[in-house]
Structure formats: C-alpha cells, structure tokens
Nucleic acid binder design. Structure first.
Lengths: 205, 205, 205, 205
DNA sequence: GACTAACCGAGACGGTACGTCCCGTCTTAAG
DNA sequence: CTTAAGACGGGACGTACCGTCTCGGTTAGTC
C-alpha cells in the first residue's frame, strides 16, 4: 500500500468552479473526425463543429485557439503511441518497418489530417511549430536512434549527416502524400529504403 | 516539327466590344505579389486584391476562378522559363545544378507562393492538378532526361525505378520548404545529390 | 410641358454601381412592423429581421445604424403626413383635434413603436435627438401656431410661456402612454384640454 | 385597530445554513450605482456587475430576477423616505414643494435610474408594475391628499377629476426628463404649478 | 462536535445575437 | 463587351452576455 510514485503532485491547489466537461470534450473530438471525413478540412468550421457536437462555440474557443489545434489534438495522442523504436536486427529492417507503419497511418483519415495541418502551417506559423513538435520530432528521433545503432554496429558508414539522411528518408512519403501523384504502398517504402541503404552501407574493405 | 503557329491564333474573327485591359491585368499581378509578401497567402482575398489593384471584383472573377489561379499565373511564366535541361557532362553535375537552381527560386517569394499553392491543393484538388502540371511536371521531366542520359552513358545503373529516384531527388527540398525545420542552402543540395548518387552509380566490376 | 420645379437637382453626377434594392427596403419595413407586433420591440433583432425579410444582415447595417433607426423610419413617413394644423375656429377645438388625433395614432402599433423609441433614447442619446426631430418637433410647432393664433384673436392670454404650455399639453399623453396606468381615450383628451384652457383664457374684463 | 403585530413573524423556525452576506449585498448596490453613472443603464450587465462587486453571478441571480430589480432596490429606499405630505398652508405651496423636491431628486443619478426603469418597463411589463408601485403610487397619493385638503378648504373647485389633475401635475416633469428637450429647474416647476392652479381655483362669486 | 443546509466565489456550460468580413453574383453608368 | 463601383443574399467569424450548473469552501443552525 506504499504509494511510491505519483504522476500528479498532491500539492496542486484545487481551484473552485465547475470542472471541464469530459462529455463535451469527447463530442468535439468525435465531431471533428466526422466532419474531416465528410467534408474535408476546408469543410470544418467552428460553427458547424459546435452544432454537430451539441456544444456552445465558446466552449471550443475556451480550450483551442483554432481549428488546426483541434485536429492536432485528435491525432496527437494516436501519433504519440505509434512511435516505439523497432528492433528487427538490421537498419534496413528497422527503417522498412518505420516507413511502412507511417504509410499505413497516412493512408487512413490521419493522412488527410496531416496534409491539412501542413497546409494550415503554411498560413499560420504557430501551427507549423506545433506540428513539428507533435508529429515530426519523435519520428525523426526514432530514425536517429536506428541510424546511430547502425553506426555502432558498423552496419552503416560513420561519416553520414544524420539530419540529412532523416530528411531523405521521410521526405518522399510527405512529398507523395501532399502532391498525390503516386501511392504510398509497400513497394514504394521498400524502394525508398533500398535506395537510401545503398548510400549508407559501409563499403566492404 | 514544323508547326510554328502559336497557340493563340491571330486569325480569329475579332468580336466587337472593349478589349481586356492590359493595365488592369498588370495591376492585379502586381497587387497579388505585394499582398503575398505583405500579408501572406492567407491575407490575400479577392476584395482586398481588387481594392489594392484599383479594379472591380468582377474583372478578377471574369478571368480567374480562384485566388490560387491568380497566384499560379504570377509565378508560372517565371517558372516555365527556368527549366532548361543542363548539360555539365555528368549526372551529378546536372542534378546538382537543377537542385541548386530550384532552391534559389524557392528562397524568394516564389517559395512562399509554392507552399501556399500546395496548401490550397490540399483543400481544392483542382489546384493540385494545375500545380503538378505547371510546376512539377516539367521539372520531373528534366531530371528524367538527365537520368536516362546517365544510363545511356553507363554512368548509373540500368535497373533504377526512375519515378522513385525523381521523388527521392526532389522530395527533400519540398519537405524542408514546407516544414521549415532546416534551410535550403548549397550544402543541403550537395549532400542530397551525393547521397542519391551513391545509390545510383554503377558498381565497378 | 414646361417643368417649373424640380425637387432633385439635375446636376447630380450619377455614380456607377448597383442601385439600392427597393424590394429589400420594403421587405425590411414590412418585417419590422410584423416583428414589432408579434414580439414587441425587445423581440426585434437584426438577425431575425434579416431572416424574416429574406435579406442579408449587411444590407440592414449598410443603411441603418441600429434597430431604433429602422423602427423610426417605418413610422416617420406616416407621422409626417398626419400633422396638418387644424383650423376649427377656436383654440379649444384645434387643441382637442390635435390631441385626439395623436391619441388615435398612439392607440395603434405606432404607440408601441413610440414607447420603444423613447425607451431606446434613454440608452442611446442619438436616438433621442432623432426622435425629437422626427416625432416631437413638428407636433409642438403645430400647437405653437394654434396658440399664437389664439393670442392674435385675443382668445387666450398674451403672457403665456408657450413652451411650457406645449409641454403641459402633450405631457399627459406620453405620461399615460409610458406608464400605462390609464387609457388614452376621448374623455381623457377632452379633460386635458378643458383643464389647460382654464389656465389660458383671457380673463373677462 | 389593535393589531400591533408586525408582518414578519418572529416565530418562524430559523432554517440552518449560512446567512445572506451583507457585504456582498452592499458591494452589489455600490457597483450598480457606479456602473449606472459610468456606463449608463445599457452598460450594466450581470456579468460586469458581478465582476465589479467581486461577487459570483449566482449570488445576484439568487436575490434578484433582473437588473431592473437591482436598480429599483438601490433607489426605492431613498424614494420611500422622501415622500412625506407637505403642509405649507396652501395647495399652491404644497404642490410647489412636492414638484420642486421631485425635480431635485430627478436631477441626480436617480433621474437616470428612473428613465432607465421606464425604458425597461416598455419591454418587460412586470417592471412597469413594480415601478408604478414603488415610485409612482405614493407620490400620486401625496398629491391626492393635498388636492382633497384643498377641496375641503374650498381652496379649489369641487368638480375636478383628481386622477386627471394628478396626471397633468406630474406629467410635464417626466416628459422633460424623458425627452430631455428642456431642464427641470425651479422656474419650470413654478410655471407648471401656476398654470395648473389657474385651472383649479374656485371662481370668485 | 458532527451533521446538515444554505450561502459564497469561481468559472465552465449550451445558447443567442452581435457587428464585421468576405464570398461570388448582380446591376449600374461610362468607355 | 469590358470596366470600376458598389449593392445584394449568404455564411462564418470571434466576442459578449445570458441564465444555469457544478465545483471547493464557509457559516450557521440542529442533533
């Protein structure tokens, strides 16, 4: 019965006033996904969102600054969970798994959300900052770990510019996602990884 | 190969009525660039654009379908001119020159226009089609020619998926342009080309 | 065929642009009366008014500053017409007719409009100014003329404070209209005039 | 004529629970006057009032039904006290004193409160009822007593419609208060009383 | 001294209307 | 037949308040 760890500090002074409504929160999240799927990101607007969720507009404005923030919140929890570092034994295998998994996610509604957020980020820089923080950063870190592990295992060259490699690794996926000129299928991910690996492998002595 | 006629025929029977005002056209083009620089793409709207250009709204609606079309028109002429196929003698050199030149363009206001158009394309698919047609297609063709020339010259491997290579070649540029996490400088283009070339070169026997 | 008089100067330079819609104007006027009767002045709001009239909100805001101004416009034309100076031969008869006619108007929806405008005037001084100008001024002028005619005819005393008498003449009507403690009927108007006349008649030598 | 018991019985079983906060009550009264003076009646709203008084909104809603009720409460005590029946010896003198005193009150913030309440009464009939009960009734009663005393003393005519005379007596004050076209000064009150008295005095045989 | 009841401040809630902005369409007089 | 001007119906914006509801906490009886 000895409480060893406590996530929330017990010292927080509870303020008076009605608590935030969990029910409203969930209704908003749900309505956001629905509207995104039905009307696309451009079809979402705060008024329709509030109507659909059965919620006052102010309740939305109280907790989010813009619709991008809402969309981000819907997918951020999901995104956070799906980025464990794989360990298949080889850099190629790890990269392949990471890219494969990403494409699977982006082929769902989440892909639509991501492109919409990148679009919004072009107009509102703050969205860009938040997007990088929530959806880009940890995925890049994952690949950084994989690559460094590969260097340690002498699987790939030492003198690689990690950041540049990570760019080259992820970029084709976003490029296709945004330009929609070709699909994000398994063949694609395999070829990207193959091409990249040829530039990374340590030359045999 | 002998058809020298231009697309807009000079033989068309001239209909009566006032001609399109060149002055208004130029004022709109000018106002678009100004507003894009001052307020960003989100700050452009037809009403403000007409006011700034000293033009009636109808004049804009008569000639363009949406603001993306206007922005596209401003930068399309410029883009069209800057895509001759270079011939430095080597694939590496050619690719380097292409990428270098692209980044130079994207580091100007044109870069802002491009990201805005990609953003708009996420909402309006027709913008996506037009954007690929006007800004992507010919640049990809350029690289395709360079690569095929490289294959013929046995400079690079035969069994490469050209489309995939072109994706991997251009993607990092757009990735950085849209996410803004790192600059589009000369070091960057060189490293991208180097990394890619390692995956393309024909292995020595 | 010789045009002798022109109300509007012929020199006005006609500006371009669409003309004000007479149809919308009339729909707004009609909707205002309807809403006033159905819901009272407090029940009128710009949004409902626009909806009822089948008109954009901006069309209302373009021509009127507040709902009081709209209500005023509905009844001002009507009010303007009903203030000819009567001439029954006696001051008593003239005053009686004026007061009687006013009460008849105020016993219709116009009465509701008037009280609402006076109410609004307590909050927005500009409404007060406009109200006095449109609904009070000319009626006071009418009585002023009647009284001066009575002085000239030696019907009433010379040394009367005209403004004060006009106040005392009209005040009871508005007092009852606003406090609603007693009706505005013919008995009332007659008694007011009788009481006032006793204070005005020239004492017999 | 022997029932000496008060209306509020002292025998009521006291319910448990915290008592009404006198401090909050006074803060609300104070804030109401302040806001009325600073922003006018239209500028008062429950939210701002609660903020200004440092009080929860619920505390206001618990004790009053609308803002008119609050304003009424602020000035009702004051009004109740100032209506003793004067006795100067003559009807003229009594009336003069009553009117003079009323105008003095109405020339303070109380005048603003009164016009605001009349305005509100036009929208909410219940406010009208309460207003007449609290601010009109007793003042009319005062004048009724004065006039009846005058009749008994054969100072004024017997055959006067008392209610009509009371209307004519008070009406000009409210008329000027609401229309603001002329001041409520001593000259005004004297002239009103003079004019009225001429209509009331018993004709000399 | 515990229990209960009514109060208090704070503040989130579903709503309604505000006045503004901009959309894309239309109707003018002028060129 | 185009142009600048500008009114039009429409729809969403973000804000202000409405009156209600829940919180944690306080105060005054009653048991």
């Amino acid at each position: 019965m000895s409480a060893e760890v406590e996530t929330c500090s017990e010292a927080t002074k509870l303020s008076p006033g009605r608590r935030r409504s969990q029910q409203s929160y969930e209704a908003i999240m749900k309505a956001t996904v629905e509207l995104l799927e039905e009307c696309g990101y451009g079809g979402i607007n705060i008024e329709a969102l509030a109507r659909r969720a059965g919620v006052g507009k102010q309740t939305i404005y109280r907790w989010w600054t813009c619709k991008a923030a809402i969309v981000m919140e819907v997918y951020s929890a999901q995104a956070a969970k799906t980025v464990p570092v794989p360990d298949t034994g080889s850099v190629r295998g790890d990269l392949q798994q990471v890219l494969q998994q990403l494409c699977e996610v982006l082929n769902t509604t989440a892909g639509l959300a991501m492109t919409s957020l990148i679009a919004e980020a072009q107009i509102d820089p703050k969205v860009g900052v938040a997007f990088r923080e929530q959806f880009i950063k940890s995925r890049r870190e994952t690949v950084r770990i994989i690559l460094q592990r590969g260097i340690e295992r002498t699987e790939i060259r030492e003198n690689v510019n990690l950041e540049l490699v990570i760019d080259t690794f992820y970029a084709p996926v976003w490029y296709r996602l945004l330009l929609k000129h070709a699909p994000l299928d398994k063949e694609f991910t395999e070829e990207v990884v193959n091409l990249l690996m040829q530039g990374l492998v340590r030359e045999k002595a």
